[in-house]
Computed example of a mutant assay.
Amino acid sequence: MKPNKYEAETLLGEQISTPDEAARAGIKIRQAGTEMVVISLGALGAVAVDGHQALWAQPPRLAVGSTVGAGDAMVAVLARAILARAISEGTGLAEALPLAVAAGTWLAARRSGLPNNTSLETLERQVKVIPV
């Protein structure tokens, strides 16, 4: 499940202001029967919670042109990584999350004019993943 901050707040009836609060929200949502929850937090990145860990992926700071489709890009990359894991057991959440956040960041920032030679892989290397 990949709600954004507003959707998670609405679902739970509580405010989410920090990555720690997003992690707690993700745990509550998981307890309702979802295997993995990734809550997108806009410029703060995303918090992912599965049965083993809670991780905050903090993206690089870039000017944003439009966030339309950024969450969809994140979901597409996560879905691909989850499928790859199911097939080969080679990709886990900690490995998939930076690329997923980079995909959403790249899509949002490209509309504001990314610096030349800024690739998805370049952004992925700039995403910090922090346990929460």
Rank of each mutant, 00 (worst) to 15 (best):
K2N: 13
K5D: 07
Y6T: 14
Y6E: 10
Y6Q: 12
E7Y: 06
A8K: 04
T10E: 14
T10D: 08
L11V: 02
G13V: 01
G13H: 08
E14F: 02
E14C: 07
Q15D: 03
I16A: 00
I16K: 03
T18H: 04
D20I: 03
G26F: 05
G26L: 05
K28W: 06
R30I: 08
A32L: 14
A32R: 15
T34Y: 13
T34Q: 07
T34A: 15
T34D: 04
T34E: 13
V37K: 09
V37M: 11
V38L: 13
I39P: 10
S40W: 08
S40D: 08
G42V: 12
G42T: 07
A43S: 14
A43Q: 14
L44M: 15
L44N: 11
L44E: 15
A46W: 13
A46L: 11
V47D: 10
A48D: 07
D50V: 07
D50H: 06
G51D: 15
G51R: 15
H52N: 15
H52R: 15
Q53E: 15
Q53F: 05
Q53A: 13
A54E: 14
A54L: 00
L55H: 10
W56V: 07
P60Y: 12
G65Q: 11
T67S: 13
T67G: 09
T67R: 10
T67K: 02
V68S: 02
V68E: 03
V68Y: 00
G69P: 06
A70H: 04
A70L: 08
A70E: 11
A70F: 08
G71V: 11
A73P: 08
A73R: 05
M74F: 14
M74K: 00
M74D: 00
V75T: 12
V75F: 04
V77G: 02
A79E: 00
R80Y: 09
R80W: 11
A81F: 01
A81P: 00
L83H: 13
R85C: 10
A86K: 07
I87H: 03
S88C: 02
S88T: 15
S88K: 11
S88M: 01
E89A: 13
G90Y: 01
E95H: 01
L97T: 12
P98E: 13
L99I: 04
L99R: 12
V101M: 08
V101T: 12
V101G: 05
A102Y: 03
A103G: 01
A103F: 06
G104M: 12
W106C: 01
W106F: 12
L107Y: 01
L107E: 01
A108L: 08
A108T: 10
A109D: 02
G113P: 05
L114M: 11
L114G: 05
P115W: 09
N116W: 02
N117P: 00
N117G: 06
L120S: 05
E121K: 12
E121V: 11
E121W: 01
T122W: 11
T122Q: 11
E124I: 00
E124L: 00
R125D: 12
Q126G: 00
V127M: 02
V127C: 06
V129T: 14
I130L: 13
P131T: 13
P131E: 14
V132I: 11
